[in-house]
């Protein structure tokens, strides 16, 4: 069982230093989402949505896959109820990130927690959770790190969509910017998935997401994530017994 340090071992950073560290650490993720933001900006431009509606959808949904699906469905005349159900289903995984990140801010007043919940999304979880688990950021340092990372992520996300809408997503196909997001994610996976349990979780989740692509309501990523977590937990239970037997 992993030990989670809710209290700091030492205070390693001032507020500004921690905020800057958050900006620095989320930068690979930001580079991964900018091409996606450009693609969504282009999709807004090509759709029947007004620029105001399209740009409003960026910060208000703050989740690329759901935003793109929403734009495409609204453009195609899909019934509003179906659009809403689909987008919320795609975003259901955010509940897991909320559970993971909330514990680091549990001692904050409710109004602050409500604000801190605003940018909960894949990239924030992938960047902040491992950093917080190192345990050397205090209460204020965690908030600074989180706010710094969130500000940079949201700014880049909105700016990339505005840029694509204003000047068109004119980057040549040969630059392969579409590969930036998977590369950023594979980099994060290579760094974070060490040890048997996370590797089992990752392999299972990857397989289930691929095989389960046809699941209704775009549920494959959520189902795959849960399957990966269960498989990882199961392997963690099996491993100590195996070690016991062998020793």
């Amino acid at each position: 069982m992993r030990t989670v340090h809710l209290q700091p071992r030492s205070v390693a950073h001032g507020f500004g230093g921690a905020a800057f560290e958050g900006v620095r650490d989320i930068t690979p993720m930001v580079m991964g989402i900018v091409p996606f933001g450009l693609a969504i900006g282009a999709a807004i431009g090509a759709s029947s949505l007004t620029s105001a509606e399209g740009l409003f959808s960026g910060p208000v949904i703050l989740a690329g896959a759901a935003q793109l699906a929403t734009i495409q469905m609204l453009d195609g005349g899909t019934t509003p109820v179906v659009v809403i159900l689909s987008a919320v289903s795609i975003n259901a995984r955010i509940l897991l990130y909320s559970a993971s990140l909330a514990r680091w801010f549990a001692d904050r007043p409710l109004w602050q927690r409500l604000l801190l919940a605003l940018p909960v999304i894949d990239q924030m979880h992938f960047t902040c959770a491992p950093r917080f688990e190192r345990g050397d950021l205090d209460r204020s340092g965690r908030a600074a790190y989180y706010v710094g990372a969130a500000a940079w992520l949201v700014l880049a996300w909105v700016a990339s969509q505005i840029a694509a809408l204003l000047v068109g997503a004119g980057a040549p196909q040969a630059l392969r910017l579409d590969l930036a997001a998977p590369l950023a994610m594979v980099g994060l996976l290579a760094k974070s998935a060490t040890g048997r349990t996370p590797v089992v979780a990752a392999v299972t989740a990857g397989l289930v997401a691929t095989v389960g692509v046809g699941l209704p309501l775009h549920g494959s990523v959520l189902v795959a994530t849960l399957a990966g977590m269960l498989a990882g937990q199961a392997s963690a239970r099996v491993t100590p017994r195996a070690v016991e037997v062998s020793s």
Binding site: A99, P182, M185, V199, G206, V208, A224, T225, G232
Partner: peptide, 24 residues
């Protein structure tokens, strides 16, 4: 009991998104 599964959200979710991006 929830700490173990929550620690696996990251690797599992990244791999799920990657599988979905690369192989579908």
């Amino acid at each position: 009991w929830l700490e173990g599964p929550l620690a696996l959200v990251g690797p599992a979710a990244i791999a799920a998104l990657l599988g979905s991006m690369l192989f579908t």
